[in-house]
Simulated scan of single mutants.
Amino acid sequence: MDRQRISLLAHADHPIAAPLDDTSVHRLLARAVRRGDERVLDLGCGEAAWLLRTLGAHPDVTAEGVDISAPALERAQRLAEETGVADRLTLHRAQAGDFSAARPFDLVLSVGATHAFGGLLPTLRAAHRHLAPGGTVLVGDAYWRSEPSAAARELLGEYEDLPRTVAHVTAEGWTPVYAHLSTRHELDDYEWCWTGSLSRWALDHPADPDSGPALEAAARHRDEWLTAYRDSFGFLCLLLRRTAD
């Protein structure tokens, strides 16, 4: 089954493709959008949930989103038209790392999309290329809440604990001006939504050729989460300014 379709179906009930609830998203955006007329870029925007919320709250903000998933971008465009913000949103189907823009942005987001760049620090370097002087980056990535098992490392990769993660970021010339650590509830709710939405679609569409693979993908993901990484996986969102260039 196509991974882009899996992602779209799995996020049907949780359009923010990261373990954050609505209150946390609102708080982060309130800290990130200060003037209300910023140019905002989301690298790896998916269905542009972060951008749509920002545009809905700030009528003078303009935004651009970049993603490789045509279905996600189509949904984003449809939602932008339904909510009346399509005239202020530009979507690009491209590899996030290859995207270039004519002008810099006041706020650059990349939450839950660091895999597109090869990790957290390469993501920050990419964001920096698009950032206006004095601008802000909102980045979200995993970290280890506790010592991971070998199975967790094999599944998810080589993350660091929280102090080391932040130390790596500051060593690259960034200063955190705010942060959010996803709570146990946010982490669990995201996983139940991911596996549950995908399973519900499969059960509701038994004749679809992807129904069986979708159920298998949901069951595999649920088992990996519960048995391998639930106790050690954490998610961190950092609001960053440049310390020096």
Rank of each mutant, 00 (worst) to 15 (best):
R39E: 12
L29N: 09
R39W: 11
V40R: 05
V33H: 01
E64W: 12
L55G: 02
G46N: 04
I68R: 15
T54K: 09
V40F: 06
R35A: 15
R53K: 09
L28W: 03
S69P: 00
T23K: 13
S69E: 05
C45E: 06
G44F: 02
L51D: 04
T23D: 14
V33D: 04
G44C: 06
D60C: 14
T54E: 12
D42N: 07
L52S: 07
A63H: 06
H26C: 14
L51K: 03
G65L: 01
I68S: 14
T54F: 06
G65T: 00
R27Y: 13
V66F: 00
R35F: 11
L51A: 04
L55T: 03
G65F: 01
W50I: 09
C45V: 11
D37T: 11
L41S: 04
A49W: 01
W50M: 10
E47S: 15
V40T: 07
T62A: 14
P59L: 03
R53H: 09
D60Q: 15
E38V: 08
G65E: 05
L20D: 03
G65P: 03
T23N: 13
H58N: 12
A57G: 13
D21A: 09
V66N: 00
T54V: 15
H26G: 15
V61N: 04
R31H: 14
S24T: 13
T54M: 13
V66L: 00
L51R: 01
L52T: 01
D22G: 10
P59Q: 08
L52P: 02
V66H: 00
R39D: 12
R31D: 15
V40N: 02
V33Q: 00
L28I: 11
L55E: 02
G56A: 06
L20A: 05
L52C: 09
D42G: 03
A49N: 09
L28V: 06
G56E: 05
T23L: 14
P59H: 07
R27V: 13
L41I: 06
G44P: 01
D21H: 13
R34V: 14
G44I: 04
L28F: 02
L20I: 06
D67H: 03
D37H: 12
R39P: 08
G44Y: 03
R27E: 14
R27Q: 15
D21T: 10
R34A: 12
L29D: 07
D21R: 09
D37A: 11
A48K: 04
L20S: 08
R35Q: 13
L55F: 08
R35I: 13
D21S: 09
R27N: 14
T54Q: 07
D22V: 11
D67R: 00
D60E: 15
L41A: 05
R53Y: 05
A57R: 11
T54H: 10
V25R: 08
V40G: 05
L41Q: 01
V61S: 02
E38L: 01
A32I: 02
A49F: 00
S24Q: 10
S24I: 07
A32N: 01
A48L: 06
R53D: 09
D67E: 07
L43Y: 02
L43C: 03
E64G: 12
A57N: 09
A49I: 00
